[in-house]
Design a protein around this nucleic acid. Sequence first.
DNA 1: TTGAAAGCGCTAACAG
DNA 2: CTGTTAGCGCTTTCAA
Lengths: 349, 349
Amino acid sequence: MHNGCVPEETRRQPTIKDVAAAAGVSISTVSHVYSRARPISEPTAARVTAAAEALGYIPNPSAASLRGGQVGIFGLVLRPRNAVHGSLSGTETFTRFSGAAAAATLATGRGLLHVPNVLAEKARRVAMDGCIVMGPYERDDVVAALKKRHVPVVCADVDPSNPDDPWAVHVDYRPAVEQLLSAAASGGAQRLALIAGSEANNWTMSTRGTIQEWCSAAGLSLTAHDLFEGVGSTGAEGLAFDLLGSSTPPDTIVVSSTRFAGGVLAAAKRLSIRIPEDLRVCALTDSALTRDAEPSITSLDLLLEDQAKACVDLLIRALSEGSPPLQPVIVTPQVRWRASLGSPGEGAP
Amino acid sequence: MHNGCVPEETRRQPTIKDVAAAAGVSISTVSHVYSRARPISEPTAARVTAAAEALGYIPNPSAASLRGGQVGIFGLVLRPRNAVHGSLSGTETFTRFSGAAAAATLATGRGLLHVPNVLAEKARRVAMDGCIVMGPYERDDVVAALKKRHVPVVCADVDPSNPDDPWAVHVDYRPAVEQLLSAAASGGAQRLALIAGSEANNWTMSTRGTIQEWCSAAGLSLTAHDLFEGVGSTGAEGLAFDLLGSSTPPDTIVVSSTRFAGGVLAAAKRLSIRIPEDLRVCALTDSALTRDAEPSITSLDLLLEDQAKACVDLLIRALSEGSPPLQPVIVTPQVRWRASLGSPGEGAP
DNA sequence: TTGAAAGCGCTAACAG
DNA sequence: CTGTTAGCGCTTTCAA
């Protein structure tokens, strides 16, 4: 046996002509059997199908798209830098999103193309009907490049500089973040520390804004720290250790990435600080790292599956109608209550 | 401002004709400027480029592929069931692999298509020049379906039922697994337990085989347990708790997925068993869960980036030459030594 | 160094 | 219900 992945003789792929000849019909009949664009009699359709099956025929999508315009492919760009390197934080967020986006795209008969770097010259050769950009930065240059190439773009979470973009799936972090904060407050929180990522995307910027507003309205003290996501749990551990060892340590720490949460836990352990009794902790996204931590960490489920599905729907609308929906598309993250924040209190559902 | 993702007037994409007219040359000249298939004089090329730039022209890849045959797209199928649901184990393994595969593919000017389910009828419409299947099962039906559709297939890690497949990137787990075992043995291991996933892929089957052989040759006792990956760390914790509480508890536990490792750690903690003094632990893949665990867990780095790159190279060979490489392509995983197994001993490099 | 023209495989009028 | 035919945008001979 040959174990070959390629047919021994490089036999030309059968075309619509071959099928038409074998079935004794015209090529347009064959075409219509596949496109269902017009009714074909039962016996004819059966003959065509049989012939196609026998020859191993599959319609050439390039040829089909040449006429019809669309190529049957959506692109996906994951913006947060750490998405590319699986070893950094946020891994689960991106897997969940791309898996869901791929499934939703495939359900429409299209494919989802993973595009690490649209700006690269090489990438210009790959065709897309539209593109989903997850977590765009302020005035995102990838989005700009795509638009210049006439590629319809839909964003998952809005570009912070374009907050009313009707072609984005808006993520409303506010309600969940406020639930988190009021739960902390009702548990006795006085001094908050925020350890957030340093990227200029809406997740980082909007949650920080909400927290600042809420704290100042509620009269809680807040110190905010930006930490490059790449420093991982070790980096967060160092920062948390310093904070917790200072003369005025925080009693509540909110972290953005789940790897930061691990670092905070480690620092607390080294200092024999009990969670949630002495220190409350919560994270602004969810992953195995927070679910399985000891103690488990209250965090935000960003509902990535919903976001992905909504993006695909929006992109299809852009392609078919061209006009944006009248109401913005909104996804509202949910709090997953766990041990690290004490009891949910009045903030819980 | 309109915030539009689609141009206000749905203006037809400029074609090669428009560029030719604007530059005052023939369409074949424009074509050759882009394909570099024949020399074009400097001033002419400049005029064409300028015209194309002004019009925002990009060559239509569908049209190009109609003639040339290839569509510039590789498919990627992640076989392990838990790869689809980001929330289960192995997340990082698949992100790393697909990120690396996407980068390697893009570097060749092609795109990487995420294919959740090739068997679905809908998926037949998406075109691929070839497909990478990661972690195929025994007599994998996805691989079979792809081959039936004349799609060249390359596997990352071999189909266990086709161990000499020249169109696979072979992963040789043996050396690293043996290093792990001899380190455990030189640390005093006597009674081993293996908690492996239940999927019939080569990772699971080959490592289990090596461990069984090695233990019987070295005279160590071994009990092997299959656990569905979906049970996660909680499932593994329950099993480990029972094992460690039995009358003849293991002194070494090897787990396949990193989430299982977390469960083992939790069980040991509940029973006040010290690691690595009383119990040695190691995992057969690596992730944030093992790197950041307390104590950190010795595990296998599967070198997913190398695997992905090798797959892309192999697929390109299949497309261009059609004949398999004379020597099998092999990737050899590396042990990442950490606290949970004690000192590496003689097994370490 | 460049142009003209014949398709690539398929879709979509337009006829019958 | 089915067949004929003119392209879709580009590549690629073949001429000039």
